[in-house]
Structures are given as C-alpha cells and as structure tokens.
C-alpha cells in the first residue's frame, strides 16, 4: 500500500512504450498488429472490470460476457438507428451494461459461492439466447457495423487512433480503479472481502456495497464491448456466450486476482500466447491450458504477483 516510486516509474515507462507502439509497428510495416494490440487492450479493459468484481469484491461472477456483449450490441443497434457518435453511443453502452448489472446483481447477490457462479451464468445465458432469437439484433449472425463510431474531433477509422483511444480509456480506468480502491468505499470493500460478518455487525450496508462493485465492474465491460464492436466491425453473439465469460475469468486468474494490473496482464498473456502458439502449432489451446495450470500451481497470485507486490 506504500507509494512506490519505482512502481510509478515503471508504469510511466510502460505507458510511453504503449503509446509509441503503433508508430513503431507502422515504421516496420506491421500494421496488422495495431489491430491485434487494440484487441489486447480491449480485453484487458474487460478483464480489469471483472477483476474488480472478483478480486476486489470477492464475488466470482461467471457472466461477464453479458455486459461485454451488451456494450457491443448497444453500439451496433444505435448505429442501425442512425446514431453514429461515440459521444452518445458509448455512454449508452456503459449505462446499458450498468443497468443490466444492477438488475442481475440485485437478484443474485444474496447467493454466494457456487450458487452465485451458477446464477450469474444463468442470467448471462438468458441474455445470450434472447439476443440470438431477436431478428433486429441479427440473430446468430450478429450485427455488422456500417462503419466505426465517430468521435469528433478524432478519426476512429484510423486503426492507430482507435488504439490510442482504447489505451487512454484503459489507463483512465486503471487510474480510477486505484483511486476507488483507496477511497472509503474501497476500504469498505476490502473489509467485506475479509470478513462479511464483521462488516454487517459494524452496520455497513453490505448488499449495496457489493452491488455497487458489481455494477462498476460490469459497466467497464460495457465500455470494452463498445470498443470491441468497433474493432471487429460487428457485435457478435459469441461475445455474449458463456465461453467468453470463462475466458475473461481465465485472464483474471492468469494475471492475478485482486491485483490492479491482473486483468490487463492476463488478457495480454492469454491472447498473446494464443496468437504466438497459433502460428506454431494447431494445439495452441492445449499449451495455453498448460500455461494456466503452471500459473495456478506455481504463481497463485498470478503474473502480477510474480513481478511485484502491487497492492
């Protein structure tokens, strides 16, 4: 919890490197990787939101894909209705995910452990099947975007710009999260994770504290979903499917549950590994599984726990 100057220094260096990345890739003619890097950052954002729920809030939610997908569909549906501006559609995506999380959270937060896992999964699958059965949402095929969202004065059609915007949003979310974790609310959340009985006995509104955490983490996923729709050029049902929730959870575990950079590191490691292994072998999933096993066995605090003592 002590402010570490070497930590901030490393963070700043990392941020500068991340900002410079598209320029380097362009210089080497590897423009394809700008899109890939954007994808990493988007998943990093979604996993960071999930890590807030799982790691800070102590609630193992297995339905994060629902909010991720809702964000994407919000952007796609609004675009079909003629609304292109990200200034409108992205906040709507966030609000829609938050609202869904408010309803789902209010209904499921009284359960815990395996029951909470199952009930969040069930709600997420319900949303998946509803969307797939809706004709105006594109059914099984998903909903293509006519173009990327407009974000005056920026031009998101440019891959590098979308990358930078994503990076900015990820950095802002990570900073906001740090701030939130150190606030009175964040401290209450820590207390809750360690001893719910005591928090209750101190008179804290335990359910509300959890609900806020669930909604905030899901809203972040909504934003990530809006970005992914832009990056993919469509909102697809697979984004809502339970396997997506599983993958996000794997990212969090891989990166470090409750570590501030856990979601980000996990997303980068998992997608990076898949990309690299996908080029070498057809059995990339097998090796990714091995890597996950190794982390669970030898680095229970995840990748973030390996290199530094964040938090």
């Amino acid at each position: 919890m002590k402010p570490s100057h070497s930590g901030t220094l490393a963070e700043t260096a990392l941020l500068i490197a991340a900002v410079a990345l598209p320029l380097l890739l362009q210089a080497f003619g590897e423009d394809y990787y700008i899109g890939f890097a954007t994808r990493l950052l988007i998943f990093a954002l979604a996993a960071t939101g999930l890590n807030f729920i799982v790691g800070y809030g102590g609630m193992v939610a297995f339905g994060h894909a629902a909010f991720f997908g809702i964000g994407a569909y919000a952007v796609a549906l609004l675009m079909n209705a003629g609304i292109f501006s990200a200034w409108i559609t992205w906040p709507v995506a966030v609000a829609a995910a938050a609202l869904a999380a408010l309803l789902i959270g209010a209904a499921s937060l009284r359960t815990r452990g395996v029951y909470f896992i199952m009930i969040t999964l069930a709600f997420a699958q319900m949303i998946y099947y509803s969307v797939v059965s809706l004709e105006f949402a594109g059914g099984d095929d998903g909903l293509p975007l006519e173009q990327r969202s407009t974000l005056v004065p920026l031009d998101l059609a440019d891959d590098a710009t979308l990358y930078w915007v994503t990076l900015g949003l990820l950095a802002a979310s990570l900073m906001a999260l740090k701030r939130l974790a150190a606030s009175r609310y964040g401290r209450a959340l820590t207390g809750l994770r360690q001893n719910e009985t005591r928090m209750e006995a101190l008179g804290y509104p335990v359910q509300q504290i959890k609900l806020v955490c669930f909604v905030v983490g899901s809203a972040v996923a909504g934003l990530a979903g809006a970005l992914l729709a832009n990056q993919n050029g469509m909102a697809s049902p697979s984004q809502l499917y339970w396997t997506q929730s599983g993958m996000l959870l794997v990212m969090v575990i891989l990166g470090g549950v409750g570590q501030r950079f856990g979601g980000m590191l996990g997303a980068i490691a998992l997608l990076g590994l898949e990309e690299v292994l996908g080029r070498i072998t057809e059995h990339s999933h097998f090796y990714v599984g091995l890597a996950l096993l190794a982390v669970v066995l030898y680095a229970p605090r995840g990748l973030a726990g390996l290199w530094g003592r964040q938090k």
């Binding site: 701030r179 939130l180 150190a182 606030s183 009175r184 401290r187 928090m199 101190l202 008179g203 509104p205």
Partner: peptide
Amino acid sequence: LAVQSRQRDWGSSLRFWRPA
C-alpha cells in the same frame, strides 16, 4: 473501518474518490 461505519453519507461522491 469501525469509525468509518458511523459515516452514513452514502450520497457523497467523496467517499468513492477521496483517499481514505
């Protein structure tokens, strides 16, 4: 945390932003 529990200003955004 016990002292903090007496502050029941849930509407105040400060409790989400200002470092404890």
